[in-house]
């Protein structure tokens, strides 16, 4: 089936090189034994990975990111699952407008959201708090969680629930015993994608984070603004390694393409 000719494969090779080059360079520089930025031409060294331990800001930022990602993507499901079921099952006036609103954080530039949240939370004295970060993250990751849960909710055969009802199951039992297990794959992939989005978010978070609530990308960004040294490359390399691991797991479990496009089978 491989009908790609020589020129196609050459193009493909250059393209893949382009896509991977910056990521590989970060990982290589992270292993430099030198005290300055350089490719590890004189052997590999772990000194800059060890150095991370001496900068508690990075460690703390990492745990803030993990906690924020886990909490926000869990809480967001509590909102997104009912919303997805409501949108998937009922035809009512204003349905399209409603789903457009709920997906709008995808459209609004994160810099605008960052400014809007900063303005909003300052008004209530919440600026720089973890709670403010949490609320903001719930909103920006909402569309990702919604899309995937919506896709599995619309893909579900409604008569399966009707069958459960006809057999005497109450609403709550139907949800717990039938609906929930059936949309579980969508829920898990939605959670994972929401977590990664929260973990990576920098543009909006940079407006809201204060020392102590800085997330890892924000800490890295602020560090790079001051100066670029091998330390930040080893931190980045670690982030890349963690993400690639998560990516492979996600791909194995659900297929990356599905997770990223959030394809819904329903045609309007």
């Amino acid at each position: 089936m491989s009908k790609n000719g020589f020129i196609s494969l050459l193009f493909h090779t250059l393209f893949v090189t382009f896509m991977l080059a910056p990521i590989i360079v970060v990982c290589l520089v992270a292993f430099t034994p030198e005290g300055y930025l350089s490719l590890p031409t004189n052997g590999f060294s772990l000194r800059w990975f060890k150095a991370i331990g001496r900068y508690p800001e990075f460690i703390r930022a990492f745990w803030v990111s993990i906690g924020l990602g886990a909490l926000s993507s869990t809480i967001v499901l509590a909102f997104a699952v009912p919303a997805a079921l409501g949108l998937a099952r009922y035809q009512f006036r204003g349905r399209d407008a409603l789903s457009a609103l709920l997906l709008s954080p995808l459209m609004i530039p994160h810099v605008v959201l960052g400014i809007a949240f900063l303005r909003f939370f300052t008004q209530f004295g919440l600026s720089g708090t973890f709670a403010a970060l949490l609320i903001a993250h719930i909103v920006v990751i909402f569309p990702f969680a919604l899309r995937l849960t919506l896709s599995s909710a619309t893909g579900m055969d409604r008569s399966i629930e009707q069958a459960a009802i006809s057999l005497g199951a109450r609403d709550w039992v139907v949800f717990r015993r039938v609906t929930l297990p059936l949309i579980m794959p969508g829920l898990i992939s939605g959670w994972a994608l929401a977590f990664i989005q929260s973990f990576d978010e920098v543009t909006m978070t940079v407006f809201l984070a204060a020392p102590g609530t800085e997330t890892l990308p924000v800490r890295m960004f602020l560090y790079i603004q001051d100066n670029i040294d091998p330390l930040v490359t080893s931190v980045s390399a670690s982030v890349i390694a963690i993400t690639v691991l998560a990516l492979i797991i996600l791909d194995r479990m659900f297929g990356l393409e599905h997770v990223l496009t959030g394809h819904s089978d329903r045609t309007k």
């Binding site: 055969d157 008569s159 399966i160 069958a163 015993r177 059936l182």
Partner: peptide, 11 residues
């Protein structure tokens, strides 16, 4: 008791 066109078994 209902038998659905799609069978609607709990997968």
């Amino acid at each position: 008791g209902i038998v659905f066109q799609s069978y609607a078994l709990f997968p």
